[in-house]
């Protein structure tokens, strides 16, 4: 029981770190967004493993809410990518650089 809990948290931490590194290194908008989703799901995994370990029902329900928010975020995000694509016909983020000081 304890081992499963710890390994779940380690997995969650790993996924979260991979997500952060992805956001920093990837240069394609979709890959960036996938990394962000990875981070959100890592957080979800932490939530569920806490809930399972402590025997709390509420943790699982909270995850449902977070997944809904993530889905709404995906909807808005993809729409923004499309409008970026319309401007320049690609979504490589380092070439969308009109705004800088």
């Amino acid at each position: 029981m304890q081992e499963i809990f710890v390994s779940n948290l380690v997995l969650s931490a790993l996924l979260f770190t991979i997500g952060i590194l992805g956001v920093m290194w990837k240069r394609n908008a979709i890959s960036l967004f996938m990394s962000v989703e990875l981070m959100l799901n890592a957080a979800n995994l932490a939530f569920v493993s806490f809930a399972y370990q402590m025997g709390l029902l509420s943790g699982g329900i909270l995850v449902l809410f977070i997944m809904t928010v993530a889905a709404a975020e995906a909807g808005v995000g993809l729409a923004i990518f499309i409008s970026m694509f319309r401007a320049k016909r690609h979504i490589r983020v380092d070439e969308h650089d009109m705004l800088h000081g």
Binding site: V36, L40, F47, Q53, I66, V76, K88
Partner: peptide, 30 residues
Amino acid sequence: SRASEAAFKYFILGAFASAFLVLGIGFIFG
């Protein structure tokens, strides 16, 4: 295209930040 670029930057960093926020809430909940 400036507005699209601004929306993209705001969106990605905002979503990035909410992932931190959710994980933080998760740990406090735990």
